[in-house]
Design a binder for these strands. Structure first.
Lengths: 225, 225
DNA sequence: AAAGATCTTGACGAATCCTTAACGCCGACC
DNA sequence: GGTCGGCGTTAAGGATTCGTCAAGATCTTT
């Protein structure tokens, strides 16, 4: 879930924004001055900071500069000043967007979504599955068994991918068949026997006695880390 | 070097922007309608697209949506319309920023810098790739193989660039085709075969037995340092 | 306008993968 | 104890995909 840090010296604005943002499903944290804003940003992971430039204790641009010393969290600036020099200075200090008051709430939310979208794009989730005998990087599609790379065919990979993304969960034969070969092949259980044998030969240390790719007789298969 | 793609149906605006941007040290590419904008974005790596919403041939939001099918290049929207619903729709379609005309040039440049900054530090670029048989400087677009410079055609570069920026990661044929040729060419797998052969002939010490540009049959290709 | 480089397209043998069938094993059930 | 159905294993053929080459089309540059 995304956490938004709202920084403004006017408690009414903070409250109004907090209610709106919570209504959108965001987690909201607030601050009313620069010092506590920086402190608050360091306390927990924040997805976006919404920052009013007119703070009582320190200049808004100074807040951004200080934040950028150690954090790259996106900053959306609110300001009552329309002057272009203010915008340029704030953006060059490290802000990512700038809206002048009064602003439309729907525009603010849209710009917020744009910042969040880009942030989530760049953070590639590390999908690493490790067992006692092999390691799989689901993102890179790379498999290593005792230091050696293991190659997989497309079909082998499709099956393995489904099993590995559902650890400990029983996947029925029909599920596997329809996902990999399509609904028309839902009865071709032969295919699974052949490919499960291949996967075990490539991955298990003792293919005849599998410890990770387990058969559930009459039901399906299960991946046990 | 950053490349900016300027898209506007008014040639005067395009020219004015191009001159300003070139003065800032950017490389500028231009387009005056949506189709050629998308085509242009697929031709070469673009750092930011500046897009006017009022294009003659297709809706600006449609351009963004089509672009987002295969590219994550930051988009800065220019528009004469101040309505908040326009902003919201453009941003939700995938735009990263939105300025209404008339705008200050200094503000535009500042927002451009903000987009470029985030793009550059979100991906800590490793621009120097070294293997046992060749060295590539992705920034300077320079390749050296056993002391000799190697020349690449634009298409060869696009493919190599994608592979080298994702070491050890399997890139599917569709990914490569859509990134390099555009989504319409997602099934033209011959192209890849031809160009992979060329890349190997130019880079591998033993092109018939490649050690760095690896084929994963039925899936795609992988760069192994 | 010509020359050169680059891109597209098609064809072929070679390599890889998928499908299919046969056989043996094991436990369940009669 | 015999039969049956589900599972694991193996191997061979047929189908698909890959690498390679070359020629024509297209784009760039001179």
């Amino acid at each position: 879930m995304n956490t938004i840090l709202v920084v403004d010296d006017d408690p009414h604005i903070v409250r109004a924004l907090a209610i709106t943002l919570k209504g959108q499903g965001y987690t909201v944290v607030t601050a009313t001055d620069g010092q506590s804003a920086l402190h608050s940003a360091a306390q927990r992971p924040v997805s976006v900071m919404i920052l009013d430039l007119g703070l009582p204790d320190m200049d808004g641009k100074a807040v951004i500069s200080a934040l950028r010393e150690w954090s790259s969290v996106p900053v959306l600036v609110l300001s009552a000043r329309h002057g272009s020099s203010d915008k340029v200075e704030a953006l060059d200090a490290g802000a990512d967007d700038y809206i002048t008051k009064p602003f439309g709430l729907d525009e603010l939310l849209a710009r917020l979504r744009a910042l969040l979208r880009r942030r989530n794009d760049s953070s590639e989730e590390v999908t690493l599955v490790t067992t006692s005998s092999f390691t799989v990087d689901l993102d890179k599609r790379q498999i290593t068994k005792s230091g050696v790379d293991v190659r997989m065919t497309p079909t082998e990979w499709n099956i393995l991918d489904i099993l590995l993304r559902n650890p400990d969960k029983l996947i029925t034969q029909q599920q596997l068949l329809t996902e990999v070969w399509g609904p028309a092949y839902a009865k071709e259980a032969n295919y699974l026997r052949v490919y499960m044998a291949q996967l075990r030969r490539k991955l298990e240390t003792e293919p005849g006695n599998p410890r990770h790719l387990i058969t559930e007789p009459g039901m399906g298969y299960r991946f046990v880390p």
